[in-house]
Simulated scan of single mutants.
Amino acid sequence: MTMKNWSNIFVFLFLLNINLFGQDGISGYVHIEDPQRWGQTVYLSQIQLEENTNTYNTTTIASTLLTKDGFFAFDKNLFTSKDHIYKVQLNPISAEEKNKLSDKIKNFQLFILSKKDTIHFTKGERMFGEYTTNNTADLEWQKLKQFEAKYENLTDDFDPRQYLIETKGYVKDSLQILLVKLIGIKKLDDQNLLEKDAKANPEYYLSFLKELKSSELDPSTYAYLENKLNFITQEIVNHKYKVSLWVNGATSLVIILLIGFILKSRRTKKVLAPIPLSKQEKAVKNLIISGKSNKEIANELFISLSTVKTHITNIYSKLNISSRQDLLLKK
Rank of each mutant, 00 (worst) to 15 (best):
K68D: 15
F74Y: 10
T59A: 12
Q48F: 15
E50G: 03
I61S: 08
L78D: 06
F79K: 03
F74T: 03
Q40C: 01
K82N: 09
S63T: 08
N54W: 06
D75A: 08
D69K: 05
S81F: 10
I61C: 15
Q46Y: 05
G39H: 04
T55C: 09
Q46C: 03
T60C: 02
Q46M: 05
L65F: 14
I61K: 05
K82E: 07
N57L: 06
L78F: 15
T80W: 00
W38T: 07
D83F: 00
L44A: 11
L44G: 12
L65R: 05
T55I: 09
L44K: 14
N54F: 09
T80A: 02
K76G: 01
A62T: 08
I47P: 03
K82L: 06
L49S: 02
G39T: 04
E50K: 05
T64V: 09
Y43Q: 06
Q48A: 14
K76A: 06
E51T: 12
W38A: 00
E50T: 05
Q40G: 01
N54Y: 10
T60H: 01
T53N: 05
D83M: 00
L66M: 02
R37V: 06
Q48L: 15
N52M: 11
R37M: 15
N77S: 13
L49P: 00
A62H: 05
K82S: 07
Q48N: 14
Q40M: 03
N52G: 10
I47L: 09
N57T: 06
K82C: 04
T55S: 15
W38R: 04
T80R: 01
Y56H: 00
K82M: 08
E50Q: 11
E50V: 12
T55N: 14
N54D: 14
K68M: 12
N57Q: 08
T53H: 10
D69V: 07
G39N: 08
Q48S: 15
F71G: 10
K76N: 02
R37G: 10
I61P: 11
S81Q: 13
T53C: 04
N52F: 14
T53S: 07
A62K: 10
N57M: 03
N57R: 07
W38I: 06
N57K: 10
T67W: 15
L44D: 11
T53M: 12
D83L: 00
L66Y: 07
A73N: 03
L78V: 11
F71P: 08
D83I: 00
S45Y: 09
G39L: 03
D83S: 01
L49F: 08
L78R: 06
L44P: 07
D83W: 00
G70A: 09
L65V: 12
T67E: 07
K76F: 04
Y56K: 00
Y56R: 02
T58W: 12
G39M: 04
S45V: 09
F71K: 05
W38G: 03
L78W: 13
L49W: 00
A73Q: 01
L65Q: 15
